[in-house]
């Protein structure tokens, strides 16, 4: 079974890095969709079957925290596991994100095996 992912980051470079590491992680990857902010992500979530969302926090228009909060208000979207991928190093902020519905957090940069470990805890085995 291959999983479909949505990668959300305003930097094309950051998205490319995440996609590259995702494909090297050993996780069964199906389709990978990309969005540059929360608004685009919500539009894709409406039409694409996504198994896990990988999102940055600091983005224009709608940031990652706003995206996660919006998803939590929708029963279908709230069930999609969210992994935050960010430069954020503050444990205080990370704990806040985990309380807001985020299932896992990875600080940039990270190797493929760290991403696999994080996703194994989110995706059905």
């Amino acid at each position: 079974m291959a999983f479909n992912f949505l990668v959300v980051d305003d930097s094309e470079t950051a998205r490319a890095v995440v996609v590259k590491i995702l494909r090297l992680s050993g996780v069964a990857v199906g389709e990978v969709h990309e969005a540059s902010n929360g608004v685009e992500a919500l539009q894709l979530l409406e039409v694409e079957p996504i198994d896990a969302l990988l999102t940055d926090i600091n983005m224009p228009e709608m940031n990652g925290a706003e995206l996660i909060a919006t998803m939590q208000q929708d029963e279908r979207l709230a069930a999609i596991p969210v992994l935050v991928i960010s430069t954020e190093g503050s444990q205080t902020r990370v704990e806040h994100l985990l309380q807001e519905g985020v299932r896992a957090y990875l600080r940039k940069p990270f190797p493929p095996e760290k991403l696999r470990e994080a996703l194994e805890g989110l995706l059905p085995q």
Binding site: S11, E12, T13, A14, V17, S86, T87, E88, G89, S90, Q91, T92, R93, R107, K108, P109
Partner: peptide
């Protein structure tokens, strides 16, 4: 320019954590 911005973003976050630990908020 997008690539060097993202590179600096990641480097800066890691420098601050290395220097000040994971408790302070920046």
């Amino acid at each position: 320019e997008d690539t060097v911005r993202e590179l600096l973003n990641v480097i800066c976050g890691n420098i601050l954590t290395e220097l000040y630990g994971s408790v302070p908020v920046f």
